[in-house]
Amino acid sequence: MSYQSDDEQVQLLKNLWKDYGQPVVLGVAITLAVVSGYQYWQKTQQQKIAEASALYQNLLDTVSNAASPDKPVQFSPPLTEEQKATVSHVVSVLQNDHGSSQYAAFATLFLAQQQVQEGQLSAARASLEWVLAQQPASEVQIMASVRLARVLISESSVNGQQALDILSRLNAGKSYEATVESVKGDVYLALGDRKQAEAAYQKAVNAAQDNGLNRPLLQLKLDDLAAMAPQEG
């Protein structure tokens, strides 16, 4: 193809840029912005995880516990007032700044555990309800639900049905069936329903045996119910 003048060629290039160049450049710009934004978001998320992990490690160091970062803190001796203040502060920061992280859930579970040990059942209940409100991973949900059911029944037998409702909503699977059924048995017993309690304890024993676990306390509870049976009526 030939052109009558350089001006025509320049005009043609201008038209091509107008028709095709700008959309292409705009598309490239949008792509670069998306990629850059994702990289920034990813970096921010990594920083948040690192901050949450450091805070949780601070809690572990405070209570001198050897639990790993991916598991909730286990039972520990009573805390000093200074340790309590540190734990309360760390949990508060994790809840406010990293509420969706597993570290916030684990730290709050530990706080609830301490609150139960000190007889602060209302506070423990609030802590466990906070964990559940975050819609945590299945294992954490089961753990928090089981502990909440125990706290509820410890507060009052009036809470028995609420505790049963919480436990009944759980999809515990075989791994946690023994634990969930055991707590159900405790709730039924607190409500005075020995028949349902015995059935729940038996399910718990069977589930434990299926998983190759030895739960002598469960068998003891069943034996105690059996010994009480002749006295009924």
Rank of each mutant, 00 (worst) to 15 (best):
residue 132 L to E: 11
residue 140 V to W: 00
residue 137 A to G: 14
residue 141 Q to V: 04
residue 111 L to D: 03
residue 145 S to C: 07
residue 149 A to P: 00
residue 127 S to L: 09
residue 116 V to W: 11
residue 120 Q to K: 13
residue 143 M to C: 01
residue 139 E to T: 06
residue 141 Q to T: 14
residue 133 A to W: 06
residue 142 I to W: 12
residue 114 Q to D: 05
residue 115 Q to R: 04
residue 117 Q to S: 14
residue 149 A to E: 01
residue 119 G to A: 02
residue 113 Q to W: 08
residue 119 G to V: 01
residue 148 L to T: 02
residue 129 E to W: 06
residue 136 P to Q: 12
residue 135 Q to N: 15
residue 142 I to A: 03
residue 123 A to T: 01
residue 142 I to H: 07
residue 113 Q to A: 05
residue 114 Q to G: 10
residue 122 S to C: 01
residue 126 A to G: 06
residue 142 I to T: 08
residue 137 A to R: 12
residue 132 L to C: 05
residue 142 I to C: 06
residue 143 M to N: 14
residue 129 E to A: 01
residue 114 Q to F: 01
residue 122 S to E: 13
residue 114 Q to H: 07
residue 133 A to T: 06
residue 111 L to H: 01
residue 144 A to S: 00
residue 111 L to E: 11
residue 150 R to G: 04
residue 112 A to Q: 01
residue 148 L to N: 09
residue 125 R to W: 05
residue 145 S to Q: 10
residue 141 Q to S: 10
residue 117 Q to E: 14
residue 111 L to C: 01
residue 133 A to C: 00
residue 115 Q to D: 03
residue 124 A to P: 10
residue 135 Q to E: 11
residue 129 E to K: 05
residue 133 A to S: 12
residue 150 R to W: 02
residue 133 A to L: 05
residue 127 S to P: 10
residue 113 Q to T: 13
residue 139 E to Q: 15
residue 146 V to D: 06
residue 142 I to K: 05
residue 128 L to W: 03
residue 133 A to H: 02
residue 149 A to T: 02
residue 114 Q to P: 06
residue 134 Q to F: 04
residue 143 M to L: 15
residue 138 S to N: 15
residue 143 M to V: 11
residue 141 Q to N: 14
residue 127 S to E: 13
residue 122 S to M: 07
residue 132 L to W: 06
residue 130 W to S: 05
residue 119 G to Q: 05
residue 127 S to Q: 07
residue 145 S to I: 07
residue 118 E to N: 09
residue 122 S to L: 15
residue 136 P to V: 15
residue 146 V to P: 03
residue 125 R to S: 10
residue 125 R to A: 04
residue 117 Q to F: 06
residue 130 W to Y: 13
residue 150 R to C: 09
residue 145 S to N: 05
residue 143 M to S: 15
residue 138 S to P: 08
residue 130 W to L: 01
